[in-house]
């Protein structure tokens, strides 16, 4: 399986949940489901990940297996702005900037994954970045 897919999926859930156990469970489920789809398209990963994002939030009440390893953060990285951004912007804008600017998915892939036009994606990314710029 493509290693970039695995890393992108894990980082997506980590930056959404900020919980290693939940991120591990959700990422494993997402990666497995995306592979079983058999399409190999990155845009399908977006839709699968957002479906599992709703599912994994219910898992926080269960005892999840211990996770080996932790995410390595860059030095001097303050994640408070990112956590605050989640409260300030809409979910669609938050997801757009995450997939676009952090996970480096293209606008066309996001448009395909979210089922909207590329212009809408750019608009959402611009608005989220403006808000994030205020927080940083």
């Amino acid at each position: 399986m493509d290693e970039n897919i695995i890393r992108s999926t894990a980082l997506f859930f980590y930056l959404n949940l900020f919980d290693s156990k939940l991120a591990f469970a959700a990422s494993q489920k997402t990666v497995s489901a995306w592979r079983d789809l058999g399409t190999g398209r990155r845009s399908d990963l977006i839709s699968v990940a957002h479906k599992n994002l709703k599912y994994v939030r219910s898992l926080k009440f269960f005892n999840l297996e211990k996770v080996a390893g932790e995410f390595e953060m860059p030095k001097n990285l303050n994640t408070a702005a990112w956590i605050e951004l989640k409260k300030r912007v809409e979910d669609a804008e938050y997801a757009a900037v995450l997939w676009s600017q952090i996970l480096k998915f293209t606008d066309d892939e996001l448009a395909d994954g979210f089922g909207v036009s590329p212009g809408t994606i750019r608009h959402r990314v611009g608005r989220a970045l403006r808000e994030l710029g205020r927080l940083v």
Binding site: A10, L11, G69, F71, L103
Partner: peptide, 9 residues
């Protein structure tokens, strides 16, 4: 984007 995913995963 430079956050590193655990290699074990």
């Amino acid at each position: 984007a430079q956050i590193q995913t655990p290699e074990e995963w």
